[in-house]
Nucleic acid binder design. Structure first.
Ligand SMILES: [Mn+2]
Ligand SMILES: [Mn+2]
Ligand SMILES: [Zn+2]
Ligand SMILES: [Zn+2]
Lengths: 135, 135
DNA sequence: TCCATAATTGTAATCATTACAAAATTATAA
DNA sequence: TTATAATTTTGTAATGATTACAATTATGGA
């Protein structure tokens, strides 16, 4: 038996050959690969693999909280307020709210490894009025 | 004299009619409008306005740190590590690094206004090796 | 007025993501 | 096994925001 098999089965996901391959690729490449990187890497071993399958499979894993999507950009928004603050985006109504929290500074561990020029802190969830307008 | 005029002039930006209009729109709409929203709102008053101009003008303001771009999504990346942590993205080499910082929790002020389901903390800048490979 | 420069426009290209229907595979039951 | 249903995978086309770029227009000084 395979650990990935049992993990997927625990989540009611049928461990098809392709799905297991994609999962194991993520296990062996923790450096936040893109869809294209996953596709390019696996297409040798799985010559009939399609990119849609990679998208579909990742969506499946994300829905089961087995994989996290790093959402780094989207339709851009513009803010005249250039002082540090955070934002909350409602996943229902798509509204964007200001949050008066500053992104934390990097501590000594990272201080000389990275020169930070900008930080973005984004919360996702459901805003109050959208919570109410549900049952 | 106009405050926007002088502000732009201070930044060596010629305060053309269009540029002033776009800037004032941002001043009067602080809710993080998109390019399309800006364009749609101004196209009545400026019938010959083009979206490219909106893009160009915003880029100009961003370069002068008069406007901040909210980068909320981009080519997606996938992370098998679903526990809270932050990321640093190098603007030169595009590499993505893990940072062992948890996004701060929302305090009482926001606690019952927003139901947070996810948080993303992203730092931008230049990584060590890219700093070195410069003069 | 003439000319150089800058600003603006419009269209086409790019490219990641999504939609969707067809094809292939797998599971289930007769 | 064979038929049938359900699921998985595929391939292509659509979407839509952003960018590239060349053409056009406006501006300001000589
Ligand atoms: Mn804001
Ligand atoms: Mn990570
Ligand atoms: Zn909402
Ligand atoms: Zn770098």
């Amino acid at each position: 038996m395979d650990a990935v098999h049992t993990l997927l089965m625990d989540h009611q996901i049928k461990p098809s050959y392709t799905r297991v391959k994609i999962f194991k690729y993520l296990q062996e490449h923790k450096n936040h690969p893109t869809v294209d990187e996953i596709y390019q890497a696996l297409t040798e071993e799985l010559p009939t693999l399609s990119k849609t399958t990679v998208y579909n499979t990742l969506k499946l894993y994300i829905d089961h909280h087995l994989v996290k999507e790093l959402v780094l950009k989207e339709q851009k928004h513009y803010d005249l307020i250039t002082t540090p603050h955070a934002h909350f985006k409602c996943d229902r109504c798509e509204q964007l709210f200001d949050i008066a929290i500053e992104p934390p500074a990097l501590d000594e561990t990272y201080e000389d490894a990275f020169e930070v020029r900008d930080a973005q802190l984004l919360y996702h969830g459901v805003c109050r009025s959208c919570q109410r307008s549900q049952a």
